[in-house]
Design a protein around this nucleic acid. Structure first.
Length: 486
RNA sequence: GUGGCCAUGGUGUAGUGGUAACACAGGGGUUUGUGGUACCCUUAUCACGGGUUCAAUUCCCGUUGGUCACCCCA
């Protein structure tokens, strides 16, 4: 039964497509007749092939799709990404960081050791696979990689502090959402070998200024989670408190009491929030040293007039943080926006990490920013404001005829060497088409080179707005364009 | 990973149980040296696979992808 149906179906489909291509959109009176004939003959035609068959064969190739959560950054968005990278580079370099570039593939153990089992990143988000007997991972974050690089190259003997920045793709197998991808880009910076509140403050300020440079209003939230010991004491207290309020907690949080009690602090569940409000705050459990350290950072932030909010519930998901932790949040003025509380990035101090990965005991602190989310915000804004992208002034080089075509190629090449950019399309033969492109691309002037001009050594300069034209010497082209472009 | 919503040309949208309409963008043209207007032509196996049906783009299931909330994070 099913096979029979299949064949009828496919044959009819072929008939349909044949009919469509034959009848197309011609005179409506004739069409019905054609339809009838096509229906009868089409199956044979389709079977025997011809031009239609070729189309079908080509279409039968299934174009591979990009993977879930992976996407292309379209050339149309290139300007945004260029600006983001540019801002990142400027900020980082101006604060004295040098760029670190590393492979995206690492030994999986690097991340398992540093980020820690039990975290979501390691347990369910990291891309891990066996290759050639090695357990490899696509980097889910960069701090561990920076530390690895620091140790590998013996940077502890370099003048301290060692400051580096990066702009790289990261990989996490999470469920995609707007602004959340499985391959996403992070801009970040790390400072090694110095434990001083200025360092922490500098990183917070750099992260904040980066976002601000991108034209986005951000809020800084800071907290201190103290030393490992402070935290242990605090967790004991916290767990005790949470157990006493267990019945008010969400199911999720009940599970987390033993597994990862700190995470309950930033739960979104309303019941949880009520409980958290009266929970002991980690600040009260900090050692004197940690408390003083934190206070100094705040003083620096005050000094630099960076607006910040103390957030006692701010703890970060990774195991290696100590003392300072901070996050940068997006503040949308748009009430309709669904991204009012979007985390743009975060960071903190990780003093034990270098040692944990087998290096000399070295203090460290860093941040990372999610560039994709900034790009998303900028893109949405661009869409709202319409195309405000003020087109750069430009001129168009048009040619007519073979000789002019060749001569123009040379002229354009010479201009390029002088650093002058012009629009052109030498592949287009008709002058009409070229001028059309010129006006569409918003060129103020078109330079037209025809047979006659090639002979005379001249060229026509056409004002695209007024339509007025003048003829100038070819030798003056460069100067003329520079003048026109301002 | 859990749940909801969604899937029509490059983009944004119509629409129908008998295979598709519109706008924009792109390409070509309206007789060969002049654009922004007009006109014409062109661009879709209606995501993929299966089922129900005489017939599916339209109904059902699955897959894939998107999106939202949760989880978590950037």
């Amino acid at each position: 039964m099913p096979p029979k149906k299949k064949t009828t179906k496919s044959v009819k489909k072929k008939a349909a497509s044949a009919k469509k291509s034959t009848a197309s959109k011609k005179a409506s009176k004739v069409a019905p007749k054609k339809k009838v004939t096509a229906k009868k003959t089409a199956p044979k035609k389709a079977a025997s092939g011809s031009a239609k068959k070729i189309t079908k064969v080509n279409k039968s190739v299934r174009t591979p799709q990009s993977l879930r959560g992976m996407r292309d950054i379209h050339p149309k968005d290139a300007a945004i990404w260029k600006e983001l990278f540019h801002n990142a580079e400027n900020i980082a370099e101006s604060y004295g960081f040098a760029r670190l570039q590393t492979p995206i593939l690492e030994e999986a153990s690097l991340f398992i050791k540093s980020i820690g089992k039990g975290t979501d990143i390691i347990d369910k988000e990291m891309y891990v696979f066996d290759f050639d007997g090695n357990k490899l991972a696509l980097q889910p974050e960069m701090t561990a990689v920076a530390v690895r690089s620091f140790i590998n190259h013996g940077m502890h003997v370099d003048p301290q502090p060692v400051k580096m920045w990066y702009f790289s793709p990261m990989y996490r197998h999470d469920r995609p959402q707007a602004g959340r991808y499985r391959q996403f880009y992070q801009f970040g910076a790390e400072t090694f070998g110095e434990k001083n509140p200025v360092i922490d403050a500098e990183l917070i300020v750099a992260a904040y200024n980066f976002v601000k440079d991108c034209g986005i209003d951000a809020q800084v939230r800071v907290n201190s989670i103290g030393s490992l010991e402070d935290r242990k004491n605090y967790i004991v207290e916290l767990v005790g408190y949470l157990r006493s309020k267990r019945s008010y907690l969400s199911e999720e949080s009940k599970k987390r009491i033993n597994k990862n009690p700190l995470r309950i602090l930033d739960s979104k569940d309303e019941g949880d929030r009520m409980v958290i409000e009266d929970a002991p705050q980690i600040i009260d459990w900090l050692s004197e040293d940690s408390k003083n350290y934190f206070m100094k950072i705040l003083e620096y932030l005050d000094e630099l007039e960076v607006p910040y909010v103390l957030d006692p519930t701010l703890v970060r998901g990774l195991d290696y943080y100590c003392d300072t932790v901070f996050e940068i949040f997006y503040e949308s003025h748009d009430e309709e926006s669904n991204m009012k509380e979007l985390a743009l990035g975060g960071g903190g101090r990780y003093d034990g990490l270098v040692e944990m990965l087998g290096g000399q005991p070295t203090d460290g602190c860093g941040f990372s920013m999610g560039v994709d989310r900034l790009a998303l915000i900028l893109k949405q804004r661009q869409a709202q404001e319409g195309i405000l992208t003020s087109k750069k002034p430009c001129v168009y080089m048009a040619h007519l005829g073979d000789q002019a075509n060749r001569r123009m190629l040379k002229i354009i090449e010479d201009l390029r060497r002088e650093g002058i950019q012009v629009k052109h399309n030498l592949a287009k033969a008709s002058l009409k088409g070229q001028l059309e492109q010129a006006s569409r691309q918003g060129c103020s002037h078109a330079f037209i080179l025809g047979q006659k001009e090639v002979q005379d050594g001249t060229i026509i300069v056409r004002d695209m707005d007024s339509g007025s034209q003048e003829t100038i010497d070819q030798k003056k082209i460069g100067r003329e364009i520079t003048k026109l472009l301002g």
